[in-house]
Simulated scan of single mutants.
Amino acid sequence: MSKTKIGALWEDKEVLFDLPFIYLKLRPGEKIFDRIEPIEDTKGNTGSKGRMIVTNLRIIWHSMSSPRINLSVGLNCIQSTSTRVVNSGLRGSTQALHMLAAYRSSRYEFIFTNLSPSCVRHYTSVSGVHKAYAASRPYRDLKLRSAIIHNKQLRILPLERICLNEHSIWNLSSESGNLGTMVITNVRVVWFADINDSFNVSMPYLTIESISTRDSKFGEALVIATRPSSGGYVLGFRADPRERLHSLRDELQELHRAYCERPVLGVEMTWNEQPSKPPTDDIEELEEIGEPRGEMGPNLYLASQLAQYKSDNEVQPVYNAYLGLAIEPLKEGFTLKSLFEVQTSS
C-alpha cells in the first residue's frame, strides 16, 4: 500500500487494518474531535483495551497494549451507527456502539464497547461527527448542475469566502461555448452559465489535479483537470479579453497551492452540552497522534503523551529524594510507581 499525505484524500474513503504508524498520523486539514479510552473493539479484538480517536475524516482505534493492532474507518464508508447489547470480553453483557461500513466490495461490522460505566461518549461523538461529515459534502465533492446558485449569486458555505468573481468566462464544453461567470473562493472553483444558472459546475480544490493553459480550437484556454477519484474531468475555459487568462491561471494555481497546504474540509462540531466525560483540553490543539513506543501499558503510554505538551511557561525541575535526581514535576494523578509500572490487559 502506498499513500501520500499531500495527494488525493483517502482517509475518509477507506477501511484499513493494522496500519504502519505513518498512516495513522493526521494529514493536513485533519483534526481530532474526541479521544476516548478505554474502548474495546468487541468484534475484532475482544478482551483488549484500546483508544478511539474521532477525527473529521475517520474513526481510528488502536490497542493500548499493542498499538500495532489498529484500524482506520473512513467516515464516507460508514453506512449506519446504532447501539446494541453485546457480550464484551471485559464488561460482560453491555450496550455498545454498532457500526456498519462498506469499502469497495466488502462489508464490515464494528462493535465498540466503552469500558467506563455509564459513558456513551463513544456513540454520541461518532454519530455526531458522521452527521456533520455528511452535511459538508460540497467542500469535498465535485458537483454538476446542482442548486448552488440563487439570483445569480453563489450560495456561500459556512467556512467559505469569495476571492475572485470573474465575468465573461466561456465554458468550452460545447461546439460554440457557453458564456458565464466564474466564482473563485478559498474552497472551490464554481462556474455557471449566464442564461441558465442551473448549468454549472462546482470543483473543490480537493478534487483538482492540475490547473494550466493550453491551445484549443478556441485558442488558448484555461484547463482544469480533476482527479480520477472525482471523475477525471478535463474542463476548458476562455476569458474575454484573452489577456486575463494568464493572470487568472496564476491566481487559481496560488489558491490551489494554499488550499493543499491548509485544507478546509468543512466538518465542524459544536457540543450543545458537555459530555459525561469531556474531551481532554488538548484535543483541538493536537496536530498528530503521539507515536506508540513499544508495548506500553495504559498509564505509561498516556504519561509519555502528556509529557509532550507543556505550558507556555518553562517548568522548573524539582529534586526528588527517592531518585536522588532533579525531575520535572509529575502531572496530577501520576506517581513514580505508576510511571515505571508496565500494565497488561487482563
Results as ranks from 00 to 15, higher is better:
Leu330Trp: 11
Glu40Arg: 09
Asn114Met: 11
Val15Asp: 03
Ser346Pro: 06
Ala307Thr: 09
Lys49Gln: 14
Ser210Tyr: 02
Leu339Met: 14
Ala101Ile: 05
Ser106Gln: 12
Asp12Thr: 07
Thr81Gly: 04
Asn186Cys: 08
Ile32Tyr: 00
Glu251Pro: 00
Ser93Glu: 13
Asn320Ser: 08
Gln95Trp: 00
Thr280Pro: 13
Arg91Lys: 13
Ile53Gln: 05
Pro38Gln: 04
Trp10Leu: 02
Tyr301Ala: 12
Pro67Asn: 04
Arg137Gly: 01
Ser118Pro: 00
Ser127Tyr: 01
Ser210Phe: 02
Lys152Ser: 15
Gly290Leu: 03
Arg242Val: 14
Leu179Phe: 00
Pro117Gln: 15
Gly89Gln: 07
Arg262His: 14
Lys5Ala: 09
Asn171Thr: 06
Arg145Glu: 11
Asp18Val: 03
Ile69Gly: 00
Arg35Ala: 10
Arg257Glu: 15
Leu9Cys: 07
Ser202Gln: 08
Val315Cys: 06
Asp41Ala: 13
Ser216Lys: 06
Glu288Arg: 04
Phe192Asn: 02
Arg91Phe: 01
Pro241Leu: 09
Leu179Lys: 01
Thr270Val: 13
Arg35Cys: 10
Ala221Thr: 07
Val129Met: 06
Ile39Met: 05
Arg244Lys: 15
Leu71Asp: 01
Gly44Trp: 15
Asn151Ile: 03
Glu254Asp: 14
Pro279Cys: 00
Tyr133Thr: 10
Ala101Thr: 03
Pro263Met: 13
Tyr133Gly: 08
Lys31Gln: 09
Asp312Arg: 12
Val183Ala: 03
Gly47Phe: 13
Ser174Asn: 02
Asn320Glu: 09
Gly297Val: 07
Thr335Tyr: 05
Ile195Lys: 07
Phe110Gln: 03
Leu24Ser: 06
Trp170Asn: 05
Phe237Asn: 09
Thr270Ala: 10
Ser88Thr: 09
Pro28Leu: 13
Thr213Lys: 08
Tyr103Lys: 02
Gly324Phe: 13
His167Cys: 06
Ser82Met: 06
Ile208Tyr: 01
Ser173His: 01
Gly290Trp: 00
Gln253Trp: 03
Leu154Ala: 06
Leu179Val: 07
Gln308Pro: 03
Pro28Asn: 12
Ser48Asp: 05
Pro67Ser: 11
Met52His: 02
Pro158Gln: 07
Ile22Val: 11
Lys131Trp: 01
Ala8Glu: 08
Glu243Gly: 09
Leu339His: 10
Leu179Tyr: 00
Asn200Gly: 11
Leu71Met: 14
Met99Val: 09
Pro292Ile: 02
Pro241Gly: 10
Asn272Phe: 02
Leu172Phe: 00
Lys277Asn: 10
Ile162Lys: 14
Ser116Phe: 03
Leu164Arg: 14
Leu144Tyr: 01
Pro275Ala: 07
Arg242Lys: 12
Gly128Ile: 04
Leu71Lys: 07
